[in-house]
C-alpha cells in the first residue's frame, strides 16, 4: 500500500471524534495493527482525475455524450450542499461501465434515442437543443412511474435505469460519499455501539 493511503488510513484513525473517549492504549493498539496491516497491501487504482474536456468517450457517440452530460446533471445537479453528477465524473463512469458490462449498451442507446425522439415530437428539436423547462417537461413525464402516462413507458423504464446508474456513479464518488456523510471503512479502536445521540433520536 502506498504511503498516501496509509496516511489517509491513519488520519482516519486520528479523526475519530473525541466524544468516543478512547483510551490512549486503545488508540495505540489500533494504530499499531492498522500500520502493520497496511504493509504491502498493493497500490490502489488512482481516482480517475476528472478532466471532462479532455475525456474521449469510448462507448458514446459525440451526440450521445453531449446528451448524457446534460441528462446526468438534470438527474443529480449541483445544489447548496454538493457538486453535480458531471463534477463527480458520472459520465466517465458510465462510459467505463458500458464498456465493461456490455448488457448496458442496448438500453442506454435505445433510451437516449427515445429522449431525442420525444423531444422532437414535443418541440421539434433534439434533447440537447431544448431549453431547461422543455427538458424538465419531458423528465416530468417519465420520472414518476406511478403517474406517468402509459405511452411514456419506454421513457419511464429508461429513466429508472439511467437514474440508478447515475446514483451508482455519483454516490460512489468522493463528492457523493461526502454528500451522504458516510464516515466508515476505517479502523475504530473500540466499538462503542450506537452513539447516544442516535439512540436518543431512535427513541424508546
Amino acid at each position: 500500500m502506498t504511503d498516501i493511503t496509509r496516511r489517509d488510513a491513519l488520519q482516519g484513525l486520528l479523526a475519530i471524534p473525541a466524544g468516543l473517549a478512547l483510551s490512549p492504549d486503545a488508540v495505540e493498539r489500533a494504530r499499531a495493527h492498522v500500520a502493520e496491516a497496511l504493509v504491502d497491501q498493493g497500490t490502489p487504482a488512482k481516482q480517475g482525475a476528472a478532466q471532462p474536456a479532455a475525456y474521449q468517450p469510448k462507448q458514446f457517440s459525440p451526440d450521445e455524450w453531449h446528451l448524457v452530460r446534460l441528462l446526468v446533471d438534470d438527474v443529480i445537479p449541483r445544489d447548496a450542499h454538493s457538486g453535480s453528477a458531471t463534477e463527480a465524473g458520472v459520465p466517465e463512469f458510465m462510459d467505463f461501465i458500458l464498456g465493461e458490462y456490455a448488457s448496458n449498451q442496448q438500453w442506454m442507446r435505445d433510451g437516449l434515442a427515445w429522449m431525442n425522439a420525444e423531444c422532437r415530437r414535443r418541440f421539434d428539436k433534439g434533447f440537447v437543443s431544448c431549453t431547461v423547462p422543455q427538458r424538465h417537461e419531458v423528465l416530468d413525464a417519465i420520472a414518476f412511474p406511478q403517474r406517468a402516462a402509459p405511452e411514456m413507458r419506454a421513457g419511464v423504464e429508461f429513466l429508472n435505469r439511467f437514474r440508478n446508474l447515475t446514483a451508482s456513479g455519483y454516490y460512489s464518488s468522493r463528492i457523493g460519499i461526502a454528500d451522504l456523510g458516510y464516515v466508515g471503512n476505517r479502523p475504530v479502536a473500540e466499538w462503542e455501539g450506537t452513539p447516544p445521540e442516535v439512540m436518543k433520536w431512535l427513541g424508546p
Binding site: L139, L159, A167
Partner: peptide, 20 residues
C-alpha cells in the same frame, strides 16, 4: 459503504421517483 448499485430503485420510495 455506498458503492456500485447504491439505492437502486429509488422510484419505489414514497416520493415515487423524480430528478434534480
Amino acid at each position: 459503504m455506498p458503492s456500485y448499485g447504491f439505492m437502486g430503485g429509488i422510484q419505489n420510495y414514497p416520493d415515487g421517483g423524480g430528478y434534480g
